[in-house]
Design a protein around this nucleic acid. Structure first.
Lengths: 342, 342
DNA sequence: CTGAAAGCGCTAACAA
DNA sequence: TTGTTAGCGCTTTCAG
């Protein structure tokens, strides 16, 4: 790997000049610029990012922190990652997915090591220990999600409050008055206190009460089995429940089965709405599930922007960005092509 | 952030001594070791990883490359990532998921920049351009997957050949003689040439022929819709097909629906086997799908080990590690707990 | 407009 | 057993 000094020698200039043309830091005459560029090309000069990072005290790498345990790499998570990475790349940064202990114990080395310029957190819990750590460490960061009180933190998040209101509006518009909510039970796991669950449950209870309606909350176990049991538990608690929200993709199939096992036809007798999920998740079912689709890509981009603005000193205050899920009815999808061969 | 020099001053030793105790590079008397450690503690010394990397010419970071487009972040992918990261961490490395262009165009900066010591590739295609690039760049790497000819490359992979044989054995044991295979069609996408598909299809055709049986291959479109159409196409081509392999999680639900819509009962009339999938994917269905579960965690660990052995100079040749998927019957799962609240 | 030179914080010979 | 010191490859004043 050619070094900058070698390029300088070859071009007959000083290393500083090479640095200037590489970074566009200072004006260099077209003539010398050309010579330098030729030399770079001939030597296949790439530049040592580590050296640059040491000298400039920035790596232009940002880390998206992903909990090493209790992980749920959903399609939406993947959208966050891909879209944030893309945005970062457009703005001259690399974004990588970095596995860290959810308790934040290993955050120190990552960050104090100077390996990353900033960090975006996801899978945020109400009282997320990583937030404290990061603040102490004094590293720029942004959340995808919110802690209990995020007013002085930069964040982007799904607007769960609006999402739930919209969901209930939708079901109510369909004539339903008795609602159910199926959630995952994270108590006792490292992801206990997962903010989306708590916000959704809270909003659900409050909104149902405000509507003078009936609401039942049920926690489902894993997989289809968990969904079937949830259906039973739901119907036990309220045999007349007819509008159901599910926030647990892997159990929704089971939920549907459980409902029909109990003699409820979907969507004739009971309506099921999958929330904060991805479009493709809803497409896996038949009939397709109506879904409140999470705005994963946009949130990922916003998160990257918020952090990079901060890093580049272009930030005006702490951005707070909330976007609700949008309703996607079961029908609004084009058929996909299928072909057969012998 | 305290520097090593500051620690040295405080401990009344030279910077070299501090370096020795930090890295365990040389013997230092317990007494001075203690003084140095005290100083480090008092100053909250963490060490600048960038500086260390520049001086030692290694970052102790390895990148798991993930295609920026055509991405399929399946549960198995996630297992690769998490288990490889864990293993790397045990061995003193950080593993991060790095999004790169599937054509390998942006590999240069990543690698020549000296930011990572090595690379593990996944989602490998038969003729993967990234492999060439990486070889040219002369960076240590390992594959999770195989190109067409990987004999001189270090790799770990699912043993698709054995997996398919085992699958057919299983179905044949159940009395089936007419087989079907449902795959995804990746032609025309950036993931065209995806090795697992090609290997599976090839092995399927050959093995079915060798068994003197009938085999039909069908390509499914996206989601449940794609699965239903695949069922139709399959039954059109061979109305008596009774043993079906699916390698497309998001369509398997649709496939089941399509089969029963055509009057086939599963598993009474036709058996369905999901291959190279994760256990949780099979659990989403009801009844649970019998699954050939991909050994994701073990492969991830092996891949990390193979690369790190190489980096640490502990490698003996090019490891070639193949592991088949293992059959997990639909019944072999314990029920998960479910609880209800008012 | 270009060059000299002083670091960035740490590693690893080589000395002592 | 510990210290001295020359880099690692690049950025960035400050002169000229």
């Amino acid at each position: 790997m050619a070094t900058m000094q070698q390029v300088a020698d070859r071009a007959g200039v000083s290393i500083a000049t090479v640095s200037f043309v590489v970074n566009g830091t200072k004006y260099v005459t077209p003539a010398t610029t050309a010579r330098v560029e030729a030399a770079m090309r001939e030597l296949k000069f790439r530049g040592n990012l580590v050296a640059r990072a040491l000298a400039s005290r920035r790596t232009r790498i940002i880390a998206l922190l992903f909990p090493t345990v209790g992980n749920r790499f959903s399609p939406t998570t993947s959208e966050f990652f891909m879209s944030a990475a893309e945005r970062a790349s457009q703005r001259g940064y690399h974004l990588v997915l970095w596995p860290v202990d959810p308790a934040g114990e290993d955050l120190d080395d990552l960050v104090s090591g100077g390996l990353v310029d900033g960090v975006v957190l996801m899978e945020v819990r109400m009282d997320d220990p990583r937030v404290r750590k990061l603040s102490e460490l004094d590293v720029p960061f942004t959340l995808i999600g919110r802690t209990r009180d995020s007013s002085d933190l930069p964040f982007v998040d799904i607007d769960f409050e609006t999402t739930i209101e919209d969901s209930l509006d939708h079901l109510q518009g369909l004539g339903h008055r008795r609602f159910g909510l199926v959630l995952e039970n994270l108590e006792g796991t490292p992801m206990a206190g997962y903010a989306p669950h708590l916000r959704v449950e809270d909003t659900f209870r409050r909104s149902v009460a405000a509507r003078g309606a009936v609401g039942t909350v049920v926690y489902a176990g894993a997989g289809s089995e968990g969904g079937r049991e949830a259906a039973r538990a739901l119907l036990d608690a309220d045999p007349e429940v007819s509008g159901v929200l599910v926030m647990k993709d892997d159990s929704s199939a089971g939920l549907l089965v459980g409902l029909s096992a109990a003699g409820r036809r979907v969507p004739d007798d009971v309506s099921v709405l999958s929330i904060a999920s991805s479009g493709t998740a809803g497409d896996q079912h038949h009939p397709r599930l109506t879904t409140m689709v999470a705005p994963g890509r946009e949130l990922g981009e916003r998160a990257a922007d918020a952090l990079i603005d901060q890093l580049d000193g272009a930030s005006e205050g702490k951005p707070h960005f909330l976007l609700p899920c949008v309703l996607r009815p079961a029908e609004s999808v084009a058929a996909a092509p299928t072909g057969a061969t012998a």
